[in-house]
Amino acid sequence: MSDLRIEGLTITYGGAKALDNLSIEVKTGEFVALLGANGAGKTTTLRATSGLMRPAAGKIFFDGVEITKVPGHKRTALGIGHVPEGRQIFPDHTVEENLQLGTFVRRKHRAETTQSLEDMYGLFPRLKERHKQAAGTLSGGEAQMLAIARALMSRPKILMLDEPSLGLAPQLVLELFKYLKRLHAEQGLTILLVEQQARLALQLAQRAYILERGAVKIEGKSKDLINDPRVAEAYLGTAS
């Protein structure tokens, strides 16, 4: 059991409500997409789940335990992995150091973390080629792979990704999504994906929530949503 459940979350940000009584759920083994226009509250949802933002109201449960008041750095050890918006790799650290920082919560199990490092190099061979290079010298696609690999190093039960396709060439986006699909299918990783490219995300995910102004506007199975005109409307902001 590693369900993520968010109940009635409200977050205010400079007087405005970034999230307004938002409730979503991601079940163990699911691949869920979180969609919506800019400013709909997708990033805020992930940041609150990671403990980077304090909610004004509402509760967050993970693994059946309430984590609303657990400090951010302790949530990683519980199994919440987060690939932040804009990748946020550490440019002055080498590729390998970036990956090692991902093992921070498992630092006492050295043999295991060495194995994880090998696993990541197996999964992303390009990172192995560049393991001694400063991460700041990587291309956009490589940097995104590194950000994902770094989050996986903590052995998360759920991986939350914030617009991983941002700034990548279409070809790379497809490659990236292939990796995500593999992680979900082969390793049984639970995934919560925030995306601007709704159509692509809906092809990958099993279910999706579409946010508008900090609350869930539409939810459903991807195959039902993919042809739903309301989804396009939510993006164009024509719905009211």
């Binding site: 990671s50 750095h73 650290h93 991902g102 630092r107 903590s154």
Partner: peptide, 23 residues
């Protein structure tokens, strides 16, 4: 690793936190 995390915190405290580093 602690030393490397200190450099990481300087660069980005939020990202360090989500990696589990007690910033």
């Amino acid at each position: 690793l602690w030393g490397r995390s200190i450099r990481a915190i300087a660069h980005n405290p939020d990202t360090s936190t989500i990696l589990g580093i007690p910033t």
